[in-house]
Design a binder for these strands. Sequence first.
RNA 1: ACCCGGGUGGUGGAACUGGUAGACACGCAGGACUUAAAAUCCUGUUCGCAGUAAUGCGAGUGACGGUUCAAUUCCGUUCCCGGGUACCA
Length: 921
Amino acid sequence: MEYNFKELEQNWQLNWKKNKVYKVSTESDKPKCYVLDMFPYPSGAGLHVGHPLGYIASDIYSRYKRLKGFNVLHPMGFDSFGLPAEQYAIETGQHPADTTEKNISTFKSQLDKIGFCYDWEREVRTSDASYYKWTQWIFLRLFHSYFCNTQKKARPISDLIAKYEKKGCNNFTAEEWNNYSKKEQEDVLMKRRLAFCAYGEVNWCEALGTVLANDEVVNGVSERGGHPVEKKKMRQWYLRITSYADRLLEGLEKVEFSESMKEMQRNWIGKSQGAEMDFVIKGSTQNLKVYTTRPDTIFGVDFMVVAPEHDLVATITTTDQKAEIEKYLTYVKSRSDRERQAEVKQITGCFTGAYAINPFDGKEIPIWIAEYVLAGYGTGAIMAVPCGDQRDFGFAKHFNIPITNIIGEYYNGEEANATKDAVLENSGFLNGLLMKDAINVAVDKIEELGIGKRKVNFRMRDAGFSRQRYWGEPFPIIWSDGIALPLDAAELPLELPHVDKYGPGPEGEGPLANIKEWVVTPNGLRETSTMPGYAGSSWYFLRYMDPHNTETFCDRKASDYWNQVDLYIGGTEHAVGHLLYSRMWTKVLFDLGLIGFEEPFKKLLNQGMITGKSYFFMTSQSETDQIVSYKKQDESASFKRFKYGHNYVDSNAKLTKKAFEKYLQDQSLSENEFNIIWETDNDEAFIVVKEESEKMSKSKFNVDNPDDLVIKYGADTFRMYEMFLGPVEASKPWDTKGIEGVHRFLRKLWRLFNDDLKGKVWTDEKATDAEIKILHRTIKKIEEDTEKYSFNTAVSAFMICINDLADIKCNKKEILEQILILLVPYAPHITEELWHQLGNEGSILDASYPAFNPALLIESSKEYPVSINGKVRANINLALDLQQSDVEKLVLENETVQKWLEGKEPKKIIYVKNKMINVVI
RNA sequence: ACCCGGGUGGUGGAACUGGUAGACACGCAGGACUUAAAAUCCUGUUCGCAGUAAUGCGAGUGACGGUUCAAUUCCGUUCCCGGGUACCA
C-alpha cells in the first residue's frame, strides 16, 4: 500500500469536520490553554507561503497542549473591515461586503487544506453586525468613562459628574457647574472622556480621502498605498491612550514579549522626565514656557527656539524682524511633512527680535523660530544649549550665535557633548556639581522660585479614531446642537447602511454623509465618520471566548475561564498599532470590572518574514534594449524585473533558453519583446539573471502559493517543511528545494507500517531495550523542543528517530504507536491514518501523550573525547561512576595520549563528568 | 544618529548552563537494484596539505585582541547585514 497523501488527507479532513473533533467547550475540568493567531485581513490575493508559518506553529502548539491534557482554545477569524477592501471596491465597482465575503471563503478553503484545528463555530468577523454591535458597545463604554488621575484607572463618567455637582473642581465650583448650560457641561466632560471628540491637527490623506492614525503614516506617506499625507485641522474622535502611557509601560514588565518588541513599544510611548519652565520675555507681559530634560544646563542657554506654529510668534516678533519672520513662515508652510523629514540636516531658522531673560543670571537670550522644534511635543519651545546638544550646536554655528561653555574640557569647540558626567562651570549656584546631581538641584530651585515644575512628557499622542470612510463601524453618536448624544445600548447595533455608490461626502466628510435618510434622525444628525481598522481587532480575542452571546460582548464566566491568551503568534508589523490598542482596551475593560485581567497576551511569539526570491534582467550598457548575463562588477547597469522568475530560474540564477521559452508560452509573451544575448555552455544557451530576496508580495511577482505545494506534496509535508526551514522567529528566504527531504521522511515513516507490495508490515512483537531507548530519547527531545517553540529542531529529531528505527528494522506497534502520538501536532493526517491502521478507534487527538521515563535513558558508560591542550586527539570509553584518580590513570595508559606526552608528565588533567577530558601538557 | 536583532560548509540551518563545531536536510559526487526511468537503498561530502588507503597534520564560526585547561558561546575594539525609531528638547 502506498502513501497516498492526497486521498488520505481529504478523507480525514472530511471526517474531522463531520465528527466535530475541533469543537471546544468552556465547560471543562481540564486546565485551559488559549493559543491565538493574529487574525488575517482577508485580502483578494489569498494566502501566500508566508502567512501559514505562524498558523502552523500555533496549530502545532495547540494540538500538543491538547494531547497533554489541556482544554485548548485555538480559534480563527477575519479582520474584515478596513481601507483596502474599500479601495478595491472603488476600483472594481464591487461592494466591499461582497468582495470580503468572497475573499473570506477563499481564505477558509486555503486554511482548511493545510489541516488546521480551528473550531470554525467560533469564527468572528469584525464586519458582521453581530460582532460590531459589541465594538460599538465598547466604544460607548469608553465614551462614558474618564481616567481618574488619583486612582490611575478608568471610572464611569457619572462619578465625575457627581463630583462636579457636589464639590466642583480646581477650575469651577459646584455652583458654577450646576449653572452651566448643557453644552458647557458637555464641553467640559468631553475633555475627560476616554473616547472623545476634539479639533486637532490630523494626518489627512487626500488620495485616500481620510484621516490616518500616527502609526498608519510612514515617512510622511500613507502606509497603505504610499500616498502623501498632510496636516489638517479637523474635528475628530480620539482615544485617550496617553492616559494609559504609564500603565502600558509598566505592563510590559509582566508579559513575555521579545526584548525588541518591548523596546519598540517603549520608544513609541517615549516617556521622558524633565521640567517645564517659564522665561520672562523682555518688554512683554507674556512668558515663554519651555520643556527640558536637562535643567542642569540652564546656565548654558544661549538662545531659545520656538516652533514656527507657536502662538507667541505673532505677538513677540519685533517690527524690525516682522518681514524676515513672515518670509520664513511662508517658506515653512510651503514645505510638506515629507520634505521636512527628508531634509533633516538642513539648518533653517529666523530671529524674532525678542529676548527672554534667564531667571538665574538675568542674561538676555535671543528667541528664534526654527523648523526643528516641533509644535506638537512638549511646549513647542526649547531652551538651546549648544555646548551640550548637537542640534543646538549646529544651529548656533550656522547663525553665529556665541556659545557658552559650562562643561569645561568636556567641550572641545568642535561638537556638542551631551554628557552628564561633567562638573559644571560658569553655572552660578550649580558650579562644582556633577551634572547628574545638578538636575535635581536645579528643578528643586525652579519649583522653589515658582517658575516651573517637574514634568513627564510622552511622545505618544492620543490615537485618532475616526475615518472618513464607508467600510467600518458607524459611530453610535448623534449630534444635536454641538452635543454628542450617545445611543442607548438597546439601539445597537447601529448597522452600516447598505448602499450601491459611495464616494467621499461633502467637505471632507465620509461617504455616509451622502445618505440623507440615514444621517437625519429626529434627535439630530448622525456622526458620519466610521471607526478605524484597529477598532475591531482591539478586542476580538475576547469574543472568541463567547462568540454567540447576544447579551454581552463576552460573558464574565467565559473570560474568567479562558483568561489571558497564553500564546499569541503574529508578525512584528503590529508592534505599535494593534498591540498597543488592544492592550489599552483590555486595561479599560479591566478597570470597569468587565474582565478580570489587564494584559491580554501573556506570551507573544513573532514569526519571521518569509521573503521571496525576485529576479532581474540586466540590460547592456551600450545597447539599452539588450538583455545580457548578469555580472556583479557592472554596478551601473540597469535592471528590469523578471516577473515570476522564481519559477523558471535554477539555483545558480541561471535561465536556460528552454526555460525561457516555457516562460514565454506560460505568460503568452512574444520573443520579440526580449532581446537576449545568450551565452552557451555544453551546447545549452543560457543567461544569468540577478537574484534578490524581497518581501513576498503580489506586486513583486515573487509569490508562492501554498495550495500548489499542498497538491504536490500534501498538507503534512507542507506543514513540516515550513517548520523545518528554520526558527519560527527568524526571517528567511523561501525556497522549495528542501521540501523533498521532508516528504521522503513521511514516506519512510509510512514504510515502517506498510510495504508498497506486501502491504501491512507492522507487528505486535515486544520491543527491545534499544528500541525503547530510541523512543524515550525522542519523547524527551520533542517535548522540550515543542515547549520552547523550537519546531525546526523537533522535525529533525523526528527524522533522526525514524532513520534509527528504519536502520534496525523496527516495525513494532509498541514503539510506532507512541511515535505517532508525538508526531500528531506536526503531521496530523498521516498519523491519524496510521493510528487507525493499527486498529485504534476514535481520533488520535484524544490519545494520551507518551510519558517520558528518564530511568530508561541512564547509561553506565560514555565515550569520552580526550583533548590534549584543548584539541581532541582520542576517544576512550569510561564508566560513569569513576573518580578523578581512576580516570587519570586510564587516560595516561591510552596510546595516543602517551604519544603526545612524549614521556613528559602532564601538568594537569581536567575531567568533567559526562562531558570530556582535557590533558594539559 | 540612536535602540534592538544577527554574521557558522555550496545552501537552509544545529550545538543544553563555556566542554567532540557543522546535527538534520538540500545539493553534489560515486555505487547498487532496473531493459530504462521513477522510487528506494548504500558510500562520501568544512577547507588545505600528505598518503593507494585506514589515517595523520594544520586551519576554521565576519575581523582583531583578551579571559580560560577549554570560547560559535564570556569581555573589549571594529566591519558588515536585517529590523525599529528619528530634529522628541
